[in-house]
Every structure is written in C-alpha cells, then in structure tokens.
Computed example of a mutant assay.
Amino acid sequence: MAVIAVNDSNFKSQLEGKKVIVKYFADWCGSCKLFAPKFKRLSNDERFSGIEFLEVNAEENPESRKFVGVDNLPFFAVVDNGEVVEGTSTSKEEYVVKMLEKLG
C-alpha cells in the first residue's frame, strides 16, 4: 500500500472507520528523511495490510499536528477509527513496528 500525503483539509476524513498510522515530518528534519524509505517499506509489509499509512508535514498543518500533540519530529501516531491509540517521537523502526503490531 502506498503512503498517502494528507493535510489539514482532509486529515480527519482519512481517519474515520480505519486503522491508521501517521508519520509527522518536516522538510528540514534529517531523521524524518532517513525514516521515509523505512515507512514506505513498512506500508508494503503484508503484516500491516489492514492499516493505512499517512504522512503529514507538521509545519504546514497545525490542526493535524495538534490532534495528536506532536512535540518532536519524526512523530508517529496510531489511530483507530478516529481515536488516538498511541503517539510518540522516535526514529527507531522497531518501535514503530511495535506500534503497528498493537494496532493490527
């Protein structure tokens, strides 16, 4: 499955009735850039086929950022049917996998 770029105007509609992981990033964030190919690879992992992978530019979308309380980048949030399950700032793939497994 592809990683879908969302913004403040379509963010909430992308969460309804779905299991979602959201990656928050900024263009200037080196760790965010390094994690991008890992996130794309995880989105294609069969173990997570029922989960949608979204990405949000945290600097350009303040409402989406506030929704989960982004405090550092990269920041990942898992959302189940519009409700935040967990959110954390990390650049460790193992931690993101654990978040996905809890959601799955």
Rank of each mutant, 00 (worst) to 15 (best):
I21D: 03
D45H: 15
V56M: 11
S49Y: 03
N44I: 09
T90Q: 06
V20D: 04
L73Q: 03
R41F: 13
K66I: 08
F67G: 01
L100Y: 03
G69F: 09
A2T: 08
F39A: 11
G104A: 08
K33L: 15
E60G: 06
L42F: 03
I4R: 03
S49T: 02
A77V: 07
L73R: 01
G104S: 14
V20K: 05
V96T: 01
D80M: 09
E86R: 15
S9E: 13
Q14I: 06
I51V: 10
G69Y: 12
F35D: 01
F48I: 01
A5F: 13
K18C: 10
E83Q: 11
A2Q: 15
E83T: 12
N57L: 09
S31P: 09
E93K: 15
E52P: 04
E52M: 09
V78K: 00
P62V: 08
S31K: 08
N72A: 09
L15A: 06
A26E: 07
K98W: 07
N10V: 14
N44Q: 15
D45K: 12
D71G: 11
L103N: 01
D27H: 11
C32E: 08
T88M: 14
V22S: 04
F67Q: 00
D8R: 02
K33E: 00
V85E: 15
M1P: 00
F11I: 14
D45V: 14
K19N: 10
R65E: 08
E93S: 13
V68P: 09
K18P: 02
G82W: 08
V22C: 00
D45T: 09
E16C: 06
E101F: 11
E59H: 07
S31V: 02
R41M: 08
V96Q: 00
N10F: 15
I4N: 05
E60C: 09
E83W: 10
S9R: 12
F67R: 01
K66F: 14
N44S: 10
L42K: 00
K66V: 05
S91D: 09
I4C: 10
L100A: 13
E93R: 12
G30I: 03
M99T: 07
E94N: 12
F25G: 08
D45P: 10
N10H: 11
K18A: 14
N10G: 14
F48Q: 10
L100T: 05
L73Y: 05
F48N: 10
M99I: 09
F48K: 10
F25P: 00
A26K: 05
F53T: 06
E16F: 13
V56K: 12
F67Y: 03
Y24R: 01
P62T: 11
V79A: 12
F25I: 06
N61L: 02
F75Q: 00
S31G: 07
C29T: 02
R47F: 10
R47A: 06
A26V: 04
S31Y: 00
E59N: 13
F53Y: 02
K40S: 12
V68L: 05
K92G: 03
G82D: 07
F11P: 01
Y95S: 07
